[in-house]
Simulated assay, not measured.
Amino acid sequence: MDHAAVLALFDRDMREGARPDAPGARVERAGKVVRQTGAEHGWNGVVWSDLDETTADAAIADQIRHFTGLRREFEWKLYGHDKPEDLGSRLRAAGFTAEPEETVMVAELGDLALDAEPPEGVRLLPVTDRAGVDLVAEVHEQAFGTDGTRLRHQLLAQLTGEADTVVAVVALAGDVPVSAARMELLPGTRFAGLWGGGTVEAWRGRGIYRALVAHRARVAADRGYRYVQVDASGQSRPVLARLGFQPLTTTTPYVYAL
């Protein structure tokens, strides 16, 4: 994989040319920043910027005014190659809090082994309705220890309003949800985004996450996408590397709370 070329394509397709990720969201360019203003329970934040030492502080202040004026908590997704180099320090000085850094990992679908299946006794169930969404949110809360309310609202809105842009799947052991994940498929891009892959603690280490990645990648390949992309935690990075994913850059969410 040509790292520099794929990184430039990723920035152009998924960041500077970002599309709304849910019904009711709006993506717009404000000066040298691209931001999404979401619905009440949607994602709000900055996805791309082209700043330097002379423009960064004013751009940060503009985004704070915009989102706080709407009473929205928001996130500035800072990537490892973004400029200026001290942008993270400037965000912290402006009141943002950094969450754990993740690795952006990318694979070309033609290079991936897509034959991984879940272990015996576990089946994959496509999510198409509110009951399935509730199962995904339940897994999310158990796997990550965080509230699944926003995920529940966003995924249900996507399935209801733009079902062709999202694929969600839950792994069931019998009737018990033990793992879940989703994929966003935005028209006009070459990257399918893999999101939210999580397994409850007692079921980790059995190949379920690997099977969920392979399942979603097969769907992306069938729909004509060239690449799949993951914001990977330290826990999932080794699994993805064994599947054929390569690190592209890093990303750190900087959150501005109300």
Rank of each mutant, 00 (worst) to 15 (best):
V139N: 02
G148Q: 08
H153Y: 13
H153T: 04
A180Y: 03
D115W: 06
G161V: 12
A171D: 01
W195T: 06
V133F: 05
A157S: 11
T149M: 02
L114Q: 14
G110H: 05
M183N: 02
Q154R: 14
W195F: 12
A137C: 10
A173F: 10
T128Y: 09
A143F: 07
R190A: 11
V136M: 06
E138K: 00
T189Q: 13
R210K: 11
A173I: 04
V136E: 00
E99W: 12
L156H: 14
G132V: 09
L151T: 02
T103Y: 04
E101C: 14
V122T: 09
T160A: 15
G132S: 05
P177Q: 03
Q154G: 06
V133Q: 08
P126F: 06
L194A: 09
A143N: 03
A192V: 07
T199P: 08
V127D: 01
L155W: 06
P187I: 06
A157C: 01
L172F: 01
G196F: 05
H140A: 06
P100Y: 12
T128G: 08
P118G: 05
T146N: 05
A181Q: 08
G148E: 02
G205S: 11
A192K: 00
A116G: 13
V169H: 01
L156C: 03
L185T: 03
G207R: 10
G161M: 11
L151R: 04
T146W: 11
H140Q: 10
L194Q: 07
D175M: 00
A116S: 15
L159W: 02
A157I: 02
P119C: 09
A116R: 11
A181K: 04
A180C: 06
A157H: 07
T97D: 15
A181S: 15
A202N: 02
A131Q: 10
G174I: 05
A171E: 00
R204N: 09
D111H: 15
T149K: 07
E99M: 13
V104L: 10
T149S: 13
Y209W: 15
T165K: 03
R190Q: 12
D175T: 08
P119G: 13
L194Y: 09
H140F: 15
R123Q: 04
I208C: 02
R130P: 08
M183S: 06
R204Y: 09
Q154F: 01
W195K: 07
P187C: 05
V176S: 02
M183A: 11
V139G: 00
